[in-house]
Design a protein around this nucleic acid. Sequence first.
DNA 1: TGGGATTTGTTCGTATGTATT
DNA 2: GAATACATACGAACAAATCCC
Lengths: 244, 244
Amino acid sequence: MASESGKPDRVGAICRAIRSAILERALSPGDKLPEDALGERFGVSRTIARHALGQLASEGLVELRRNRIAVVATPSFDEARDDFDIRIELEGLVVKALAGRLTQAQIATLEAMVTAEEAAHGGSEAQSLRLATEFHVKLAEMTQKPVLVRYVSEIAYRSCLALSTFGRPHSSECAVAEHRGLIQALASGGVETATALMDEHLESVAQRALLVPTERRDRDLMEVLAPYAAAEMPPTRRGGTGKA
Amino acid sequence: MASESGKPDRVGAICRAIRSAILERALSPGDKLPEDALGERFGVSRTIARHALGQLASEGLVELRRNRIAVVATPSFDEARDDFDIRIELEGLVVKALAGRLTQAQIATLEAMVTAEEAAHGGSEAQSLRLATEFHVKLAEMTQKPVLVRYVSEIAYRSCLALSTFGRPHSSECAVAEHRGLIQALASGGVETATALMDEHLESVAQRALLVPTERRDRDLMEVLAPYAAAEMPPTRRGGTGKA
DNA sequence: TGGGATTTGTTCGTATGTATT
DNA sequence: GAATACATACGAACAAATCCC
């Protein structure tokens, strides 16, 4: 009974932290993720870090080559294009499942998310990208179809990697307006309209995303993870790292 | 260079073996997969077996609950239905990528597979199911889109689990003919026709699959894995530890 | 209900392979 | 090109939870 108490899912916490870092482009394709550096940062042993890397690899977010340091996945252009093709079909299913069936509470939730997107519009590009992605994931979650949620989430996160690799900065301007239109269509119940809107939206995102490669930055790879570690692993009290 | 020689992918081998066993219904939903027994059967340590289970879990073929013995996944009826919905969209992409673009060699390969299906028709149901599934996976592989291959494969394997859970026996009779028609349409190049055919085919498979639950059999769970272990792990040249 | 056998969770030491100087 | 430093691969052992009688 209630055996969840003392055992927070540390593997899942690390995964979430790294996913967040990828979402906000604190981690870029090709960045190294050594097991023990990860373990040290999160206050866990290599075993746990290893498990987390394995799970992230299964989601296509991390590349795991034999006897080599794990790295953040570097999607090829073709893979990115394929991802968007698949994403359009899958989110089409989301739209079909949701159109005309959203509750008032759900609509309010979605509206709030878009409002947050608008608010973040002048701010950092990372924040915008994160919010936009979370909007799509939330939509998928509302279908309550676990498999759909998993696949859409995976692809959405990988899309962020593709954006890091091929996208140009400030490419999310019109996306916010499109999100609001999507909610409208979903609420009105027109499956055709909503589907068309979603297709259009994703296609234009793909167009903007798959453009020119950005230059590779070079900074302290582990340092950027510190805040994510702090956010995900509050009860870890390992020796003096972190802020005092 | 060529450091792969002495290091066959043992984790992958175990995964393939278990997948095959599921495909042929030698393993059924709910069957237990203890780490130790698995390791012993395949001649590896628990660490390796554990890794394999983790990977299979990420594919949705195995359920991994905390502190509990891993079991073959038991898809719910809704999940199975959702899987088929997704499968139709994804294989639609496969058809779109392939229609009118198949080489003669590829067509020959596919024809040969269907011929094998016909030959196995009078035989065991397990064999038929295996061949039918492999046909769809092969189709996906021909697109050379890695992500599509992964998702279609995962779902195809899970469909077998759904069939074990909900399908009635001898439900694959017309499927073979439908496969041949599919090849024809694909080779002729009509995307519309091929897509319609694929949709119809998968929908009717779903209809036949999602019918009545079969009774749960009860036999030696590890014994059935022996032939698969032998097939996948021939070159285990461990010093004399055949049976310790 | 309780206790013992079984199974998983985790850590850490050693071996092996890779990158770098 | 060889030696060193470092990271991962794997396995054995211990602790905790679960299952079964």
